[in-house]
Design a protein around this nucleic acid. Structure first.
Lengths: 138, 138
DNA sequence: CTAAGTGCAAAATGTTTGCATACTT
DNA sequence: AAGTATGCAAACATTTTGCACTTAG
């Protein structure tokens, strides 16, 4: 792994993500944010910076649910790895800090020989609010 | 929802997926399979047939892990919905038929107000074989 | 000074759309 | 006959790459 130079642009991208560990941003959104902030970072550079951060394990990547939508990225403080759940209707992202997850993960390891990567996994379903909405429709 | 005509092509695509409910195929792969089988179905038509099957709930869609990789689709016999786990190293797909999943899902519903959609969710991690490989590398 | 990063334009990829034609019902 | 599907080519959106130039270490 080649060394990572601390350029103005690289620092700007990392800072953007690390400043909001709760948020998921697409490359485009990150680019826009930087532009608004007057940071002058090329879009290509944003992509390359993100790639570098992924390699360093500082970002996690979430594939889009629908096709032809962009992937999003989130700051990944290694210490606090946890599952995320995404509502398929409203798109809200929730962070699952919960012992039950550890229990389930342990079960997978023991009974299925599978080591769950919480950082890479996104659970999909419906949040409380959207379950209500779905029922109204019926 | 408009009615779905049973064309030669539509039937061919559905048959392809339903014949192998264990397999995940990308649109491209489906197209290739059909072409090899001499079915003469256009790629556009494959995409449109897949879209229709998704709308009907007969197919589930899995977003690609790495960027610039294609999404894959799998036949979805509604009755037997279950979680899937994918090895990030070798790519193997395992089907999780397990009471623990129901237990975890129930927990999510009760304590987090979140209804898990097992069909849409893919767990990522490392399978037994690849955990061994990872350790050797160190 | 050298390895690494930048930014533009162009390519690549997966997917969707416009449209004239053909098929189902 | 009306509604839907097909297939081609072209459009699209996201992401990557080639290349000449700049910057960090």
């Amino acid at each position: 792994m080649p060394r990572v130079y601390q350029t103005r642009q690289q620092k700007a991208v990392q800072k953007l993500f690390s400043a909001r560990p709760e948020d998921c941003l697409t490359a485009e959104e990150a680019y826009d944010q930087l532009t608004i902030a007057g940071m002058e970072v090329g879009k290509t550079t944003v992509y390359r910076a993100i790639t570098r951060l992924l390699e360093q394990g500082l970002l996690r990547r979430y594939a889009a649910q629908d096709s032809s939508e962009a992937a999003s990225y989130q700051y990944n403080p290694c210490v606090d790895s946890h599952l995320h759940i995404r509502c398929m209707d409203c798109g809200v992202l929730e962070h699952l800090h919960c012992d039950e997850v550890e229990h389930f993960s342990a079960h997978l390891a023991h009974h299925h020989g599978f080591t769950l990567d919480e950082g890479q996994t996104m659970l999909y379903g419906l949040c409380k609010a959207c379950q209500g909405k779905q029922q109204e429709k019926k």
